[in-house]
Structure formats: structure tokens, C-alpha cells
Design a protein around this nucleic acid. Structure first.
Lengths: 349, 349
DNA sequence: TTGAAAGCGCTAACAC
DNA sequence: GTGTTAGCGCTTTCAA
């Protein structure tokens, strides 16, 4: 199913001088018009625009970048996956970048790709960007990468050495704590945890939050089962937990794993939430529609991207001004139907 | 949660002449080394590399693009959403672009954004790209956009006027037909359809495939319910269908809507698949883990992106050679637990 | 195998 | 308000 259409070629490369000649003005005036500079009379402006339109003129970006030293583009390093979290963050970044008047360059890293983040950053730098966004970089233990443009790190500590490193992100530990506390408040003796891969900073934060909540309630801390964010790994974790026997509440580090987990519990003959309560993390669009509808905490990806980018653009455009700070987005716990008080209420099993 | 680190600045802009001076060669020789051209002795090459390394030299991309007229970058126009389909396609494109030795520029359109695709294409052209990928452009009825670089259209007819327009995509109609036929073969009298938004070509193709299958079996064609790809709209469609009464099988145009649909059926007291069978479309990673596990057809996003990009790169690099053609990916129907023979077997209700 | 010269198309700094 | 003059840092001839 492939069609190919051949079409006229031979386009004459139109430059600003050509437009200038036709409009009977200097080349610089054309430049002024196309940069929305002041000091151009309306009459000249429209003459230039008309000429440009007639010739099909388009400003040459490479020449502009070379002459000005500014690319007006921002590069983002992200994990090359369609998983809801990373993809949402990427889309939020794209929107924010565009709103700020920049263009976007993307470089992805595969998980396990050695020197992935560092390599991706190098490639963006080669392409020429005014700033870089590292979206949920995983811990590669590479020490730090030297970069000469401002960097925004989303969802991780500042692992770069750059003129300016700005970080933003939700307080994942706090969200995890809220999720865990919800289960504890329901009366569960303790809460098991299906964690994300521990090279991810956000996975560690969630684990920390879970642990904090348990300690605050003086609960014993069950062994953690580690997944890889996929529903499949959640399913495997679910089989493992179903085998243990005394599991009454589980906090999964993301919704996908929570859904896989629930599936495994169901297949093991356990009902959710009657026998086991499950809380997820992210609030993916499907969370409210799976069976049972999933209780979870929301990650405000858009807000994080927007806030972070504001800081980055500030660092790019006012290199000497102090950076502002991102406002903390509100915590949202969405209680749906996958959680309930433990069986037999206030009775120990 | 924002930390800012201030770091040394004052980087001297190192140019190839600086490297040349230090290595005691001409600037052109430095250029040769960095472009992996031949006719450079090993000794000179290593001297240049050493000098470049010492100075921290990095080739200026804008200058290179300006002088060569080639950007070695490809732009992609995509819908700015984290939905599984578009996001998967984007990730597949990114990988394919990188493998082909190009860099990626992204421009998104919001649905309903007037002149969205055309505007996004313009912006990519302004940035300078050697080729453009239109990923599932929706029908804007804008006639055609004039572009002077090759264009790859994914999942839609060639709506551009360009030197070369190449299209690739799965045969959505065929997949939809297979999905529908599966239900019919199970013994269902007819199959209802929850369609995607009809400005999407792929939504229309799925509708067409469904219709074709029904006709081939001589079935009556129930009224179509149109959703917007979200689980929420699938849920709404489910409530509507549950009200009808004689629905025994439904083909949803994507998995998200199928999941929302199932939720609504369940809430209306209908069991899936005992009372109603449901088939989705996409095979999202969660499909196998929701309850009940969803029968669906798989969209091979990666293969489509890879095949399409091969054609695009070919069109960019050999403008005069005939375009090859994409090999059709195999159709995959994944029968899971959301489909079964109708209640009461071969009996009309 | 290496080098010299001439732009690529624009913006910046300064005149008028 | 508008024009002039220099580059930006590279690749492309063409010589040597």
C-alpha cells in the first residue's frame, strides 16, 4: 500500500536579496521585515511582504543561526518509549517549547543503552540547541556530563554540570506516601509495594515515600517486588504476591503494573478490592475504566513540563538573573474501586 | 523542589581554524577529518583529532548546513497527544530517523487546530528539513500543501503536493475486516461498531473494513456510534449500546474505547464475553491484562515507521531513482477472552 | 594527499 | 526609517 507521486521540482532558491531587488529596498530592510523589527514604514513593509510572497521566499534558518549565534531551539533527551509517563511528559514539553517560541529537537535513549543520556546530549549539542531538557534521565552512574547550555532536569536530581541546571518535577515521594497512607487509613495492617526499576530516580522516590508512610504508622515493611513498569511485570509480581498469602494491600509504582497485578490476583482467585486492595500511580486515562476502576494518584505531567520550561527559558534568556522556582502542583488522590477496608474489618488475619 | 546550580561559564568558541592552527594543518584538512573524507594521512588525522580534543572543538552545524545546503534532519508532524497509537508511531519514527543518520525535528498539531497540519509543515520548512513525515494527518479538507522536499505520509492518502510523496501504513481496512469477521465466525448475527472520529483517515478505513466484512456475510448494518478514541467516549458508546438491547458483538476502533465500552456494559449488568463480545484495535500493552483480557488486532507501528522511513530517505538521497515499496506487515489477530460465541449458540434472540 | 580562495544567506553594528 | 559593510564557521571548487 504505497503510492508515489512525482511532481515538479526545480525550485529556484530565493534569497532575501532577491526579495530586496524586487521590492526595491535594501537586503537589510527585508531582514527587518522578517524579524518584526521596528523602524519599517508600513508602506515598505507591505511592499516587501508582497515581493516575498510572489517569489515564495522563506528565510534561511541556517544562515540566521550562523549569523546570530542563537538557534532558538531546545533539545529534549527522553526514553524512546510510548509508555504513558514519558510520552505525556514529552508532549507537555513540546507544547511548552512551542509556546515559548522555540522549536524542538528530540534525542532518545534506549534503556540499558550505555552512555545513553550522555550520548544523546552530545548529539543535541552537535545539532545546536540553546537549552536541553533531560526528561526522567535514569541513573547511569556516569558522574556528570559537561554541557555549555542551560539544562532542565525533570524528575531526577541535577546530574549535569552546566552553566545552569534547573530541576522540576512532582514530589513523587509525597504522592507515594499519600497513596500508601490511603491504604493504611482504610485499616490495612501493612502495604506491599511493587516498585519500578531502581535505576529510575522516580522509582526510588516512590519507594521512599511508601517506606516513609509505613514507618509513620509503625508498620512492618514487607519485601519489595521490583517490576519494569510494564503490565507484564506487574502480572509477574502479582503471581508472586498471591503466593505469599497474607497480602491485603498493594501499592504499585505505576498504573500499568497495578493493572497487571490485579489480573494476576484475579487469576489466583483473589478478589479486588474484597480480598486485596490495590493503588496505582500516574492516573493513566484508562485507570477509571478498567475493572475494577483503579484508585491512583495523578501525575500532573503538563504542569511539570510547563513550569520546568519556564525556568529553562528564563535561564537561557536571562543568564544572569536568578532562577525562579516552580510552584508545587497539588497532590491528587483518586479513590476509585480497587481499594477497600481489609476483609473482616479490624481483625488481624 | 527546584535546585539551581551555578557553574563556570566563559567558554571560548572554538572553530575549525583554531584546531587547524594547533595541529599545523589547513582549516580544510580539519574539515576533511570531521567529515570522514578520504585522502587524509593517518598521521595528520590523529594530530587533528588530538588538537580538536584538547580544544574541545565541536563542529558548528549551522555553518555546515549553510555551506552544504543539506540539513540531514527530518521533520515529523504529529498529533500532540500521548495516545498509544500516535506516540508509538512517533517513537518508531525517531528510531528510524536516527538509524538513517538523520536528526529529528518535531512539530505537533492539536486536533481541531485550524490549518494545523499545513502550519506545522510550514514551521518545519522554516527550520530547514530535508524531508517531512506526516504521521496520521487528519482530513482538514485543505486541498493540498505545497512542499519542496519529499514527504512521507503515514496512515493517510497523499494529501501533499511535493517533489515526492510516499505513503506507508497498515491496511487498516483489512485489519478491521479480520476483527469483524472473527466475531461473525463465532456465530454472531451482526457486529456493532464504535468508530473513531471520522476526520481521521484511519478511523474511516476501520469503518470501511467493518462494513466490508458485514456485507460479505450478508449481515444487516447497525447504526455506528462515533467516539473520539478515548476510553471515556467508549464508555459513553457502551451506555448507548447497552440501552439498545440486542447487541451481542461490538468492534471498537481502538483498544481504549473497547475498554471503556466494556466498563459500561459491565455496569449495565451485561457480562463480557457471555452476553456481549468485544474486539478492539491496536493491541496496546495493557490489552492482555485488563479484565477480561481483550481480543484485538495488532498495529505494527514500528514496522510501518521503519518501512516508510526507508522510502523517505531513499527519496531524499536518490531523487531520481524510482521509489521502492513497503512490504506489507502481517495481520495479527489476538484472540483473548473478550470474545465468545453468542449466548444460546445458534439461536436468534 | 593537502591547501587557498570564494562564497552559503543571514544578522550586527554603525552610518545616513 | 533605511542602507552599508563586515563577518558568522563551514563546504566547495580548483590548484598544487
Amino acid at each position: 500500500m504505497v503510492r508515489v507521486t512525482r511532481d515538479g521540482d526545480g525550485h529556484a532558491p530565493v534569497r532575501s536579496v532577491d526579495v530586496a531587488r524586487l521590492a526595491q529596498v535594501s537586503q537589510k530592510t527585508v531582514s527587518r521585515v522578517f524579524n518584526d523589527e521596528q523602524y519599517v514604514s508600513d508602506e515598505v513593509r507591505s511592499r516587501v511582504l508582497a515581493a516575498a510572497d510572489r517569489l515564495g521566499y522563506r528565510l534561511n534558518n541556517a544562515a540566521r543561526v550562523l549569523a546570530s549565534g542563537r538557534t532558538r531551539s531546545i533539545g529534549v533527551v527522553t526514553l524512546g518509549t510510548a509508555m504513558y509517563g514519558p510520552a505525556s511528559l514529552l508532549m507537555g514539553i513540546e507544547r511548552a517549547v512551542r509556546d515559548a517560541g522555540y522549536t524542538l529537537r528530540v534525542a532518545t535513549t534506549a534503556e540499558g543503552d550505555p552512555g545513553g543520556v550522555a550520548g544523546a546530549v552530545e548529539s543535541l549539542l552537535d545539532q545546536g540547541v540553546d537549552g536541553i531538557v533531560a526528561s526522567e534521565p535514569i541513573d547511569e552512574g556516569t558522574g556528570s556530563v559537561r554541557v555549555d547550555v542551560p539544562v532542565l532536569v525533570l524528575g531526577a536530581p541535577p546530574v549535569f554540570s552546566a552553566p545552569r541546571v534547573v530541576t522540576a518535577g512532582v514530589d513523587a515521594a509525597l504522592l507515594a506516601q499519600v497513596a500508601t497512607k490511603h491504604l493504611l487509613d482504610l485499616g490495612h495492617q501493612t502495604v506491599h509495594h511493587v516498585a519500578g526499576p531502581q535505576q529510575w530516580f522516580s522509582a526510588r522516590d516512590r519507594l521512599d515515600g511508601w517506606r516513609t508512610a509505613l514507618r509513620a504508622h509503625g508498620c512492618r515493611e514487607p519485601t519489595v517486588v521490583e517490576g519494569d513498569w510494564t503490565a507484564e511485570s506487574g502480572y509477574a509480581a502479582g503471581r508472586e504476591l498471591a503466593g505469599i498469602g497474607d497480602v491485603s494491600a498493594v501499592f504499585a509504582a505505576n498504573d500499568d503494573m497495578a493493572i497487571g497485578l490485579i489480573r494476576a490476583l484475579l487469576e489466583a482467585g483473589l478478589r479486588v478490592p474484597e480480598d486485596v486492595s490495590v493503588v496505582g500511580f500516574d492516573d493513566i486515562p484508562l485507570a477509571a475504566y478498567v475493572t475494577p476502576p483503579l484508585t491512583t494518584v495523578r501525575q500532573p505531567f503538563d504542569a511539570v513540563a510547563r513550569e520546568g520550561l519556564k525556568l529553562l527559558v528564563h535561564a537561557i534568556e536571562q543568564p544572569d538573573a536568578p532562577a525562579g522556582s516552580a510552584t508545587e502542583p497539588p497532590v491528587e488522590l483518586l479513590v476509585r474501586r480497587s481499594t477497600a477496608p481489609p476483609r473482616g474489618a479490624a481483625r488481624t488475619e
